[in-house]
Write a protein that binds this DNA or RNA. Structure first.
Length: 358
DNA sequence: AAATATGATTCACT
DNA sequence: AGTGAATCATATTT
């Protein structure tokens, strides 16, 4: 019973409270049906996993869909059938033994009944005891089977165990988005879908990627500098293009954004440094009402490049490390509640009070 | 083989 | 629900 269960899988099925209720009336139960929720759960699980269900039918047991796991799934099912075989044979064995033992005891009692009177109640009681014993054994069997199935599941169904790196292309796309939205790298649901589509991965994978990226980027920005510069430079050209276009004809037509061809729809709820970016770029009042979001997405990369050229070439702030973006020391992006504003050393005198009039 | 990178999961928090 | 942090388990690099 060692069952050093595979890590990362918690057995929620058996919380080990065998039986504390003593007032059980066993007479009705002729096979095995004490109203024990524990056993019910085990049974349910075994059924759900296709262990105790019908013989290996054609179709997969449950979870409609999920047809993509093909090769590895067969391996999984092979082991599952193995478990099921063991389970069934054991179960049968127990049942048989139970019956044999019961008849044996009955015979003994009958034999004794010649010498002394034995009430039928007594017989019934004996049978009940025997059945209880054996059903507890069955329960153990079911429990260990459940464990085996769980281990098997964790072995095969845990996606961590068959991790594959995304394609180079996919990471390109994701990184492009990340570094061009560095001031607010939280893609909306739609954006996630878009990215997922482009990268041919799922939306949750996109979410995972951004979650990992965010925290790892924040963890040590230094390691990601190169990458950031790379992607910033990569998109700088197009960004400059777009921004220039937007500034030039700030009245007619829409800024043809290269990426995200269709509807832009990256809504930026509150980008605190947006105004500053705008100002530093445009110099004067520019109301990016309609182009706001699109331009903003580019501004990040532009700013990165700008701050880089500014900070790198002549060590503006003394320290070579420039804090690339508004990651305030305390937390980071997430809705900087602290009104301490953006403390970016690279940008000289802050005091940016853009025209508050909308 | 050790170190690092990376995708996924879990848990707590909000 | 969505996220940050810690962690796991595998891939890749060194």
């Amino acid at each position: 019973m060692g069952t050093a269960a595979a890590p990362g899988f918690r057995v929620a099925y058996m919380t080990a409270h065998p039986d504390r209720l003593s007032g059980l009336s066993i007479r009705g139960a002729q096979e095995e049906d004490p109203p024990d929720p524990q056993l019910m759960r085990l049974d349910n699980m075994l059924l759900a996993e296709g262990v105790s269900g019908p013989e290996k039918g054609g179709s997969a047991p449950a979870s409609g869909g999920s047809s993509d796991n093909s090769i590895e799934h067969s391996d999984y099912r092979a082991k599952l059938t193995q478990i099921r075989q063991i389970y069934h044979t054991e179960l049968e064995k127990y049942e048989q033994a139970c019956n044999e033992f019961t008849t044996h005891v009955m015979n003994l009692l009958r034999e004794q009944s010649r010498t002394r009177p034995i009430s039928p109640k007594e017989i019934e009681r004996m049978v009940g005891i025997i059945h209880r014993k054996f059903s507890s054994i069955q329960m153990q069997l079911k429990q260990s089977t459940c464990e085996a199935v769980m281990i098997l599941r964790s072995r095969f169904l845990d996606a961590r165990r068959k991790r594959r790196n995304f394609s180079k292309q996919a990471t390109e796309i994701l990184n492009e988005y990340f570094y061009s939205h560095l001031s607010n790298p939280y893609p909306s649901e739609e954006a996630k879908e878009e990215l997922a589509k482009k990268c041919s991965i799922t939306v949750s994978q996109v979410s995972n990627w951004f979650g990992n990226k965010r925290i790892r980027y924040k963890k040590n920005i230094g390691k990601f500098q190169e990458e950031a510069n790379l992607y910033a430079a990569k998109t700088a050209v197009t960004a400059a293009h777009a921004v220039a276009a937007a500034v030039q004809n700030n009245q007619t037509n829409s800024p043809t954004t290269p990426n995200s061809g269709s509807s832009g729809s990256f809504n930026l709820p509150n980008s605190g440094d947006m105004f500053m970016n705008m100002q530093s770029l445009n110099g004067d009042s520019y109301q990016g009402s309609q182009v706001g979001a699109n331009v903003q997405s580019q501004v990040d990369t532009l700013r990165h490049v700008i701050s880089q050229t500014g900070g790198y070439s002549d060590a503006l702030g003394g320290g070579s490390l420039y804090s690339p973006h508004n990651l305030n020391a305390n937390g980071g992006w997430q809705d900087a509640t602290t009104p301490s504003s953006v403390t970016s050393p690279t940008e000289g005198p802050g005091s940016v009070h853009s025209d508050t009039s909308n």
